[in-house]
């Protein structure tokens, strides 16, 4: 008799736990306000990344097409993966030969977004942008030249 009562009890208890689980899912299907989906390409305008989000490395340029990079290659040394390569050239300024950057090469496909280059930059020339849509159809497009054509070093940065 005892066994039969336990048997029936176990069934009722089992059903009770099942109903409890169903009440949780039942709550969510009756409360569509809880839906957490964001429709991504549609909400592109309103989508705001956080300030510190590490998207990709960019060399900031002013409106006068000036940047702050002196070509010291501190970032190149700080980078763990060889993502950054600085090709510098000697340019004659006021009769003196001076080292300036020719090309700031940045290979996005190798970048791990570790932020070490930004920290190492003595002149705050590079920053991490908030852009995260990196997909391209050609791998060669991922190797970027960060300094814009015709740009030059900002006055007073050394």
């Amino acid at each position: 008799m005892r066994a039969i009562i336990d048997y029936i009890k176990s069934i009722i208890e089992g059903i009770r736990t099942l109903l409890k689980g169903m009440s949780v899912t039942g709550y969510y299907i009756t409360h569509p306000r809880e839906i957490i989906t964001q429709q991504y390409p549609e909400n592109r305008e309103t989508l705001e990344m956080f300030d510190r989000f590490r998207g990709e490395v960019v060399l900031t340029h002013t409106e006068a097409n000036e940047h702050r990079c002196t070509g010291c290659s501190a970032c190149e040394l700080a980078c763990p993966n060889g993502t950054i390569e600085i090709i510098s050239k000697r340019e004659e300024v006021d009769g003196k030969k001076k080292k300036v950057i020719d090309k700031f090469m940045y290979n996005l496909s190798m970048c791990t977004f570790c932020n070490l280059c930004i920290l190492s930059c003595p002149t705050d020339a590079i920053v991490m942008s908030k852009d995260f849509e990196h997909a391209v159809f050609d791998r060669s497009l991922l190797t970027k030249v960060l300094n814009k054509p015709g740009s030059k070093l900002m006055e007073g940065v050394r």
Partner: peptide, 13 residues
């Protein structure tokens, strides 16, 4: 759709 609403999703849209 129903599965999506159970799971806090929107399902096919």
């Amino acid at each position: 759709k129903i599965c999506a609403f159970f799971q806090l999703r929107l399902g096919p849209m």
